[in-house]
Deep mutational scan, measured.
Amino acid sequence: MSSSSWLLLSLVAVTAAQSTIEEQAKTFLDKFNHEAEDLFYQSSLASWNYNTNITEENVQNMNNAGDKWSAFLKEQSTLAQMYPLQEIQNLTVKLQLQALQQNGSSVLSEDKSKRLNTILNTMSTIYSTGKVCNPDNPQECLLLEPGLNEIMANSLDYNERLWAWESWRSEVGKQLRPLYEEYVVLKNEMARANHYEDYGDYWRGDYEVNGVDGYDYSRGQLIEDVEHTFEEIKPLYEHLHAYVRAKLMNAYPSYISPIGCLPAHLLGDMWGRFWTNLYSLTVPFGQKPNIDVTDAMVDQAWDAQRIFKEAEKFFVSVGLPNMTQGFWENSMLTDPGNVQKAVCHPTAWDLGKGDFRILMCTKVTMDDFLTAHHEMGHIQYDMAYAAQPFLLRNGANEGFHEAVGEIMSLSAATPKHLKSIGLLSPDFQEDNETEINFLLKQALTIVGTLPFTYMLEKWRWMVFKGEIPKDQWMKKWWEMKREIVGVVEPVPHDETYCDPASLFHVSNDYSF
């Protein structure tokens, strides 16, 4: 037999072997998808029940369902290793196997995995149920939502704001400190077992692309791009910072340095994350009609249902689908009040099986009107990829998912749209002054938050990498806050605090 014939037969044999492996992989994935749908849905439903009704029974049910899901994933991840990716030609099959071969938290021992889940659930519970009591009246206690958040959004009393700011960190942050220390250790162990340098590197892996249509993007490039983007917006932020400082000097004349940092408790919310609520103090042309339409919403008797129905109309107007019937029947759109304790931070849920929901303790404000559009943007994205195989139902990356939500809320905030839905009067006219007011309001929300987020994530990356010793977490946190964000702590904090974890995203294990 000629050498060319042998070569042809060899190629046929290799192709047949690849085809056999690929067919086996497809069969394996079909079985996995069928089983995963049910187990993931049960786990998601148990998590939803806990988040909307925080009880010991629900946390136990959530843990049990989560353990079943984790055990299943660990088993299936091991089985998926049997299919070598280099022998799979079908890109859809390869991407699913690649996702499943990534072990995630299931790489930890059973004891450590359970401990990590306990830590995460405990931190979430402390954050959502933590109360601050009035020292003069111990029976008068406030949760973060709505009590403390209400103070931080609306109060102009310097000392009341300081009390709310400090009490939240003292009551909740200190409880979270030992848990967060354990969390860092276990998450790093999980990341390294998955061949990442640390948990920050694991997060950045979400943005990594290897040879898809000839395109590559590394975790290191992400760090470079983040640094570059921050340097680009820094001059604009510094101008905004100086303008806000001048306006705060008028409101709090004896508390603000004309050349120094801004006190952290005066920036519009509990964390200084969004400066939106400073608009009334900083509006350049106050004689113009108010483009913050909160009062109009209240006057027109809007409620949470109306807010979300208007958001749905907005999405339908640009060619996107209505929310499902189940969305309206199962979402929690208002604070249950004293009936039950719930996690009030707005979140969009894709539970699986076409079950999409939003959890939000909606208030009738323009801020929540825009947040509703943001969260519904997440749901629209979830619905758009719902037909994909189970392992591919995700956003391109976390940042893109947020961008989908944010672009919709930005569009909904324009005076033209607000006028079209009757929240600005029919005779409202846009001119240079109203446009400047609008742009300032947008800058308070968007530009003001960028250094906050950059600095927070930089601190977390450094902590996970071990570049900040545990006994210097708070020292470095406030050094970076002053240097990068231009914000100063109103009272000193020692290493018993854990100020970063006083933010939902940190205590609940979300990256930005």
Score class of each variant (00 low, 15 high):
residue 35 E to N: 06
residue 39 L to K: 15
residue 29 L to G: 00
residue 63 N to T: 09
residue 22 E to R: 02
residue 89 Q to G: 14
residue 22 E to Y: 06
residue 30 D to L: 04
residue 68 K to H: 09
residue 82 M to V: 02
residue 75 E to G: 15
residue 27 T to Y: 15
residue 68 K to I: 06
residue 71 A to P: 01
residue 92 T to W: 15
residue 64 N to T: 14
residue 72 F to Q: 01
residue 67 D to N: 13
residue 75 E to S: 15
residue 95 L to N: 11
residue 95 L to G: 09
residue 28 F to Q: 00
residue 33 N to F: 01
residue 69 W to A: 14
residue 90 N to I: 15
residue 57 E to Y: 05
residue 93 V to H: 00
residue 50 Y to H: 05
residue 98 Q to M: 14
residue 29 L to E: 06
residue 40 F to L: 13
residue 41 Y to E: 01
residue 38 D to L: 01
residue 29 L to F: 15
residue 25 A to T: 15
residue 84 P to W: 06
residue 57 E to K: 06
residue 34 H to G: 05
residue 28 F to Y: 14
residue 29 L to N: 00
residue 35 E to D: 15
residue 40 F to T: 05
residue 63 N to L: 13
residue 64 N to H: 12
residue 50 Y to W: 11
residue 29 L to H: 01
residue 24 Q to P: 08
residue 59 V to Y: 13
residue 82 M to W: 06
residue 62 M to V: 05
residue 63 N to I: 10
residue 41 Y to F: 00
residue 26 K to S: 14
residue 29 L to M: 03
residue 23 E to M: 14
residue 63 N to V: 12
residue 92 T to G: 15
residue 62 M to F: 06
residue 69 W to E: 04
residue 89 Q to H: 13
residue 83 Y to G: 01
residue 71 A to Q: 11
residue 42 Q to Y: 00
residue 91 L to P: 15
residue 38 D to Y: 00
residue 65 A to I: 13
residue 67 D to S: 11
residue 45 L to T: 05
residue 23 E to Q: 14
residue 37 E to Y: 01
residue 73 L to I: 09
residue 65 A to H: 12
residue 56 E to G: 05
residue 25 A to L: 02
residue 30 D to H: 01
residue 42 Q to K: 15
residue 98 Q to E: 13
residue 83 Y to S: 03
residue 59 V to I: 13
residue 35 E to S: 00
residue 20 T to C: 05
residue 38 D to C: 00
residue 93 V to K: 04
residue 79 L to Q: 08
residue 40 F to M: 14
residue 19 S to T: 14
residue 72 F to A: 04
residue 42 Q to W: 00
residue 90 N to L: 15
residue 83 Y to N: 01
residue 21 I to M: 01
residue 65 A to E: 03
residue 48 W to I: 00
residue 28 F to K: 00
residue 98 Q to D: 13
residue 84 P to E: 07
residue 19 S to D: 03
residue 73 L to E: 08
residue 34 H to M: 05
residue 83 Y to K: 01
residue 96 Q to S: 03
residue 21 I to P: 05
residue 48 W to H: 00
residue 65 A to V: 13
residue 65 A to Q: 09
residue 21 I to K: 02
residue 69 W to N: 12
residue 33 N to P: 00
residue 51 N to C: 07
residue 35 E to T: 00
residue 39 L to Y: 12
residue 54 I to N: 05
residue 49 N to R: 01
residue 95 L to H: 08
residue 83 Y to M: 06
residue 21 I to V: 14
residue 20 T to E: 08
residue 19 S to H: 08
residue 71 A to S: 11
residue 20 T to L: 04
residue 61 N to Q: 14
residue 25 A to N: 00
residue 74 K to A: 10
residue 22 E to N: 02
residue 57 E to Q: 04
residue 92 T to H: 15
residue 34 H to K: 01
residue 59 V to T: 12
residue 45 L to M: 09
residue 51 N to S: 04
residue 29 L to Q: 02
residue 76 Q to S: 13
residue 69 W to M: 06
residue 42 Q to F: 02
residue 72 F to D: 02
residue 67 D to A: 10
residue 61 N to P: 07
residue 41 Y to N: 02
residue 95 L to V: 08
residue 19 S to C: 03
residue 76 Q to P: 03
residue 23 E to C: 14
residue 51 N to Y: 08
residue 33 N to G: 06
residue 50 Y to D: 03
residue 75 E to Y: 14
residue 40 F to K: 15
residue 26 K to E: 13
residue 40 F to P: 02
residue 19 S to A: 10
residue 83 Y to R: 02
residue 20 T to R: 07
residue 39 L to Q: 14
residue 83 Y to H: 05
residue 82 M to F: 11
residue 95 L to T: 10
residue 56 E to K: 13
residue 91 L to Y: 11
residue 48 W to P: 00
residue 28 F to V: 01
residue 62 M to G: 03
residue 91 L to T: 14
residue 30 D to N: 03
residue 59 V to C: 13
residue 45 L to C: 00
residue 23 E to G: 14
residue 39 L to T: 12
residue 25 A to K: 02
residue 63 N to W: 11
residue 26 K to P: 02
residue 67 D to P: 02
residue 74 K to F: 08
residue 84 P to V: 02
residue 76 Q to M: 15
residue 63 N to A: 12
residue 23 E to D: 12
residue 82 M to H: 11
residue 61 N to M: 13
residue 34 H to P: 15
residue 28 F to C: 01
residue 45 L to A: 01
residue 90 N to F: 15
residue 54 I to H: 04
residue 28 F to M: 03
residue 60 Q to N: 11
residue 90 N to M: 15
residue 59 V to K: 10
residue 24 Q to S: 01
residue 51 N to I: 06
residue 91 L to E: 12
residue 31 K to C: 02
residue 92 T to N: 15
residue 26 K to A: 15
residue 22 E to S: 04
residue 23 E to W: 12
residue 102 Q to M: 06
residue 34 H to S: 15
residue 64 N to F: 11
residue 42 Q to A: 02
residue 73 L to P: 00
residue 60 Q to I: 13
residue 50 Y to C: 05
residue 41 Y to P: 00
residue 33 N to Y: 03
residue 69 W to D: 04
residue 92 T to D: 15
residue 89 Q to P: 15
residue 96 Q to W: 03
residue 30 D to Q: 03
residue 21 I to Y: 04
residue 21 I to S: 04
residue 82 M to N: 10
residue 27 T to H: 15
residue 30 D to A: 02
residue 68 K to Y: 04
residue 91 L to W: 14
residue 83 Y to L: 13
residue 26 K to M: 11
residue 19 S to V: 14
residue 21 I to E: 04
residue 54 I to F: 06
residue 45 L to Y: 03
residue 102 Q to R: 06
residue 37 E to P: 04
residue 39 L to E: 14
residue 35 E to Q: 12
residue 84 P to N: 03
residue 33 N to T: 11
residue 76 Q to E: 11
residue 25 A to R: 01
residue 79 L to R: 14
residue 64 N to K: 14
residue 72 F to K: 14
residue 60 Q to K: 14
residue 51 N to R: 08
residue 20 T to D: 05
residue 98 Q to W: 12
residue 74 K to G: 11
residue 95 L to Y: 10
residue 68 K to Q: 06
residue 26 K to R: 14
residue 37 E to V: 02
residue 60 Q to T: 03
residue 29 L to A: 02
residue 51 N to H: 09
residue 96 Q to L: 04
residue 59 V to Q: 10
residue 73 L to K: 11
residue 68 K to A: 07
residue 35 E to V: 15
residue 46 A to W: 03
residue 33 N to K: 03
residue 39 L to M: 13
residue 24 Q to K: 02
residue 26 K to H: 07
residue 56 E to Q: 09
residue 75 E to P: 12
residue 38 D to E: 04
residue 61 N to R: 13
residue 39 L to D: 03
residue 34 H to E: 03
residue 39 L to V: 14
residue 74 K to D: 06
residue 51 N to F: 06
residue 63 N to E: 12
residue 42 Q to C: 15
residue 93 V to S: 05
residue 34 H to A: 15
residue 73 L to S: 06
residue 82 M to C: 15
residue 48 W to L: 00
residue 29 L to V: 01
residue 76 Q to F: 15
residue 21 I to H: 03
residue 56 E to A: 12
residue 95 L to F: 08
residue 50 Y to S: 03
residue 61 N to K: 07
residue 95 L to W: 12
residue 39 L to N: 13
residue 89 Q to T: 13
residue 83 Y to E: 00
residue 28 F to E: 00
residue 67 D to M: 13
residue 50 Y to L: 03
residue 73 L to R: 13
residue 34 H to F: 00
residue 72 F to V: 05
residue 38 D to R: 00
residue 67 D to E: 09
residue 28 F to P: 02
residue 54 I to P: 09
residue 89 Q to N: 14
residue 41 Y to G: 00
residue 31 K to D: 00
residue 38 D to N: 03
residue 25 A to W: 00
residue 33 N to Q: 13
residue 25 A to E: 01
residue 31 K to V: 01
residue 27 T to G: 01
residue 41 Y to S: 02
residue 19 S to G: 03
residue 33 N to W: 01
residue 98 Q to Y: 07
residue 98 Q to L: 13
residue 49 N to M: 09
residue 73 L to W: 13
residue 27 T to W: 15
residue 93 V to T: 13
residue 92 T to F: 15
residue 31 K to Y: 15
residue 22 E to K: 05
residue 57 E to R: 05
residue 83 Y to I: 06
residue 96 Q to C: 03
residue 63 N to R: 14
residue 24 Q to Y: 00
residue 102 Q to P: 14
residue 73 L to N: 10
residue 22 E to F: 06
residue 50 Y to A: 06
residue 92 T to R: 15
residue 64 N to L: 08
residue 79 L to I: 15
residue 34 H to Q: 02
residue 93 V to L: 06
residue 54 I to A: 07
residue 26 K to L: 11
residue 84 P to S: 09
residue 79 L to P: 15
residue 39 L to R: 15
residue 83 Y to Q: 00
residue 41 Y to K: 00
residue 92 T to Q: 15
residue 38 D to I: 01
residue 57 E to L: 05
residue 57 E to D: 07
residue 48 W to V: 00
residue 33 N to M: 04
residue 75 E to T: 15
residue 102 Q to E: 12
residue 46 A to L: 04
residue 54 I to K: 06
residue 96 Q to T: 03
residue 38 D to V: 01
residue 82 M to E: 01
residue 92 T to S: 14
residue 68 K to W: 04
residue 60 Q to L: 13
residue 72 F to P: 00
residue 42 Q to V: 15
residue 22 E to I: 04
residue 28 F to T: 01
residue 45 L to F: 06
residue 24 Q to M: 03
residue 63 N to C: 11
residue 37 E to S: 01
residue 54 I to D: 05
residue 33 N to R: 02
residue 29 L to D: 00
residue 48 W to N: 00
residue 39 L to C: 14
residue 54 I to G: 08
residue 95 L to S: 07
residue 75 E to M: 14
residue 35 E to M: 14
residue 20 T to N: 07
residue 37 E to L: 04
residue 69 W to Q: 13
residue 59 V to L: 13
residue 35 E to C: 15
residue 49 N to D: 15
residue 51 N to V: 05
residue 67 D to H: 09
residue 89 Q to D: 15
residue 83 Y to F: 05
residue 73 L to C: 11
residue 19 S to K: 06
residue 39 L to I: 14
